[in-house]
Amino acid sequence: MRESKFYLFLGLGVLAFSIIWITLVFFQIEGDLGGYANTPRTIPFFLGICMSILGLVFLYQYKVGYVPKNKANPLQKNEIRNIIFCLIVFISYSYLLKYFGFLISTPIVVFFITRFLLGEKNWKLNYLFPIAMTGLIYFIFIILLKSSLPRGEIF
């Protein structure tokens, strides 16, 4: 039994990625390959080859019995759940921005994060922070610099 399968997984991952990439090079870039190495496909294809070589190198390292010098940190308690929560917040914020615009979604999201996700109990922080944050950004971008912030599609 090996101490660590790190390089095996890394090698396989990198190899799989490079294969997907090279397939995409042929499906997602139009045009012929050309007479000499100078087409839109050249560099992406070359990079894909480089990646697959790196994958093979990792597999070789695994075979020779390399062990990573520093041990990877074990997963923390609830880490995956927490990360998924955070991601949901990120993604829903970006969707809220898209449909409701900056002025409506920002205070709601900030309030939601501080109060519920992060469990902040201080009411001043809960209510003033979102409003201050929104107001400050609005002031800088719209009033001071006269630029644009995400406008909602609905409002």
Partner: peptide, 10 residues
């Protein structure tokens, strides 16, 4: 539970 509450608030 808290998240459900928050959704209601939203």
């Amino acid at each position: 539970k808290k998240i459900v509450g928050a959704l209601a608030a939203i």
